[in-house]
Write a protein that binds this DNA or RNA. Structure first.
Length: 584
RNA sequence: GCACCCGUAGCUCAAUUGGAUAGAGUAUUCGGCUACGAACCGAAAGGUUGCAGGUUCGAUUCCUGCCGGGUGCGCCA
């Protein structure tokens, strides 16, 4: 007996087949299988209700018919019952739970099983995307953290993932920066903290070039020289990009992020002529007040709110480069899916962009990838307002991560003073940064996110420390028993028996469902919620059932559960971008 | 003015997209370490899901109208 990885879709197919044998084929019956409240079962099928309503049948009788026709293997694996107006409830029998746990016995095997979802597909994920010559601040956190988790989930489910950092590395601000740089650059400061110095020079340049001033004309001239390939200005611009990327990478290293490409706006600067030409010749774009714009007549708002793709002065803007970017990703990377992770305020822009891309690609007969704008809400302080430092300044990402590590270090030292300092520092890095990442991922990304040190570093509740603690406790059992968790002695293990063993096993089997829903909706919080529930089931099991007991059969049975919990927790946390620990 | 997001227990959040008695954590009150990490576990209590209608076997979810908060709407990205 062996169950497929994704039990819910297995049940879905079985129910569909059963429905076909009782004459429902081709009549739009859908089983609607989902994870159930434990009070009712492990999985439930709701499809009989909707179908019976539409066909004016008795839903309960219909459900009974379908259940009767189910394949014998399904009846062998599940206790099946009808409830209420026509719910079909499925509860996995212990032997079936055991079979599943035996099969999925490592991170590699879990991944191999999950890889069917996006096998053979290429997905480009555009996230983080800071502006060069500027510090990364707290506003950049969510895109980086959510984007990386999405990359990992897509890769885990079989996709070839291309991580593309769409840098803001082009535009009018560089004229002012070069203007400031040429007058006031401090070589020592530039060597010590280049971004800090570039920000200072930009502010000076900006202040020195007010609207209508001759200084502003000079700054514009610097920009034109840059755009025309002036060697000195191009060299400066290149230097700005290089030092910026080096600084960004220090942040990315701490967050476990490594981009495949840094194709910023500058990369698309020379690829916009084609956009103007093709959108004009397909009739999508039109001249309006000297600019080139796209209207969408079928849209209530975009029929009058234009999508401006070329400014009246002939210059490109981010609509033009984003259109070129979509084409490049579709053609050069052969993307099946494109995900752009930015805050919700850019919703209008991407809605217009995607509408335009769909019409443009259709008109030219280009293959259209799936297009997803993954949005998220603002990060606020506990007062509900934008997160700021005490004196009202912007919180830098580096400072935020430093503080997370310091707070975590104080906690680890308080709880585990006997560990050597180097290990406590290492633990603090994983716990502190992990707490920041997890707090961001654990809540539905569409709402605003209230930033609270105390909540994210709490050791109970849906937090990184709670999950990392569960991992550390499992590893501790193996360590104390002198066992290698990579090779658990579980050959003589048997099916789960106690209430806590069964509850834990049931939760483990639902991992596939959690990955599926989090990935298909590009919402990592579904995975977080699952991992929290799994860790809770493990803690309940841990408190009730001692693992290292004399009875070899009981011991093997419980070690198997410990081991499978360990791999699922670690796999899940790695998918979220967190590092897991041996001790904490 | 038009549009989008949010509004759920005192607080911070879930609710698998229309399913069963709306769930967790926290705070409060009890109980549990001579068992592998008590950084834990168990229990109690806490709700007119912003308000008012509507759709149907069933609504936190969909529709309409209000009320609050946030955000966006031609040459920044």
């Amino acid at each position: 007996m062996s169950l497929p990885f994704h039990v819910a879709s297995h049940l879905d197919s079985a129910l569909q087949a059963a429905a076909n044998t009782v004459g429902l084929a081709g009549r739009g019956f859908s089983p609607e299988v989902r994870v159930a409240d434990p009070a009712h079962g492990d999985f439930q099928a709701n499809g009989a209700l909707a179908f019976a309503k539409r066909e004016k049948q008795n839903p309960r009788a219909l459900a009974q018919q379908i259940v009767d026709a189910l394949d014998a293997s399904v009846k062998a694996d599940f206790d099946i019952s009808l409830a209420g107006p026509g719910f079909i409830n499925f509860r996995l029998k212990p032997a079936a739970l055991f079979a599943w746990l035996q099969t999925y016995d490592s991170e590699e095997h879990l991944q191999a099983a999950a890889a069917a979802a996006h096998a053979g597909q290429t997905w480009v994920v555009d996230y983080s995307s800071p502006n060069t010559a500027k510090q990364m601040h707290v506003g950049h956190l969510r895109s980086a953290v959510i984007g990386e988790a999405i990359c990992r989930m897509l890769a885990f489910t079989g996709a070839r993932v291309i991580r593309d950092n769409h840098l803001g590395d082009w535009g009018t601000q560089f004229g002012k920066l070069i203007y400031g740089y040429k007058r006031w650059a401090d070589p020592a400061a530039l060597a010590a903290d280049p971004i800090e110095e570039l920000e200072r020079l930009y502010k000076l340049g900006h202040a020195a070039t007010p609207d209508g001033s001759p200084e502003l004309e000079e700054a514009r001239a610097e920009l034109v020289k840059l755009q025309n390939g002036d060697p000195a200005n191009v060299a400066l611009w290149t230097k700005f990009s290089e030092v910026s990327l080096a600084a960004f990478q220090q942040i990315y290293d701490r967050l476990g992020i490594k981009f495949d490409h840094n194709l910023g706006e500058s990369f698309y600067n020379d690829k916009v002529e084609r956009i103007y030409r093709e959108l004009t010749e397909t009739g999508l774009a039109q001249e309006s007040e000297g600019a080139l714009v796209v209207f969408h007549p079928e849209h209530p708002r975009f029929k009058t709110q234009p999508f401006l793709i070329r400014k009246a002065d002939g210059a490109s803007n981010y609509a033009s480069t984003d259109l070129a970017t979509a084409a490049y990703r579709a053609e050069h990377f052969k993307a099946d899916g494109i995900v752009v992770v930015t805050d919700f305020r850019q919703g209008d822009h991407f809605e217009q962009l995607f509408l335009t891309v769909k019409k443009w690609f259709a008109a030219k007969n280009y293959r259209l990838p799936e297009l997803h704008h993954v949005t998220f809400g603002a990060v606020t302080g506990e007062d509900g307002k934008a997160l700021k430092t005490r004196d009202g300044g912007t919180i830098r990402l580096k400072a935020l991560l430093d503080e997370a590590e310091e707070r975590a270090f104080a906690l680890v030292t308080e709880k585990n003073a006997e560990l050597p300092e180097t290990e406590r520092r290492d633990i603090a890095r994983a716990v502190g940064v992990g707490a920041v990442q997890y707090a961001d991922l654990a809540q539905n990304r569409s709402s605003n996110y209230v930033f609270s040190w105390d909540k994210m570093l709490a050791l109970d509740g849906n937090t990184a420390p709670y999950l990392l603690y569960a991992v550390a406790r499992i590893r501790s059992i193996f360590r104390k028993a002198g066992l290698d968790p990579a090779h658990p002695p579980v050959a003589s293990a048997s099916a789960p028996e106690t209430a806590q063993e069964l509850a834990l096993a049931r939760k483990l089997v639902q991992f596939s469902d959690a990955v599926q829903i989090a990935t298909s909706q590009l919402r990592p919080h579904f995975l977080c919620l699952y991992l929290f529930e799994l860790a809770g089931a493990y803690s309940g099991f841990y408190a009730a059932d001692k693992v290292i007991v004399d009875d070899p059969a009981v011991r093997a049975r419980r070690l198997l559960l410990c081991h499978r919990t360990l791999i699922v927790l670690e796999t899940g946390l790695h998918l979220l971008g967190l590092r897991t620990l041996e001790r904490m």
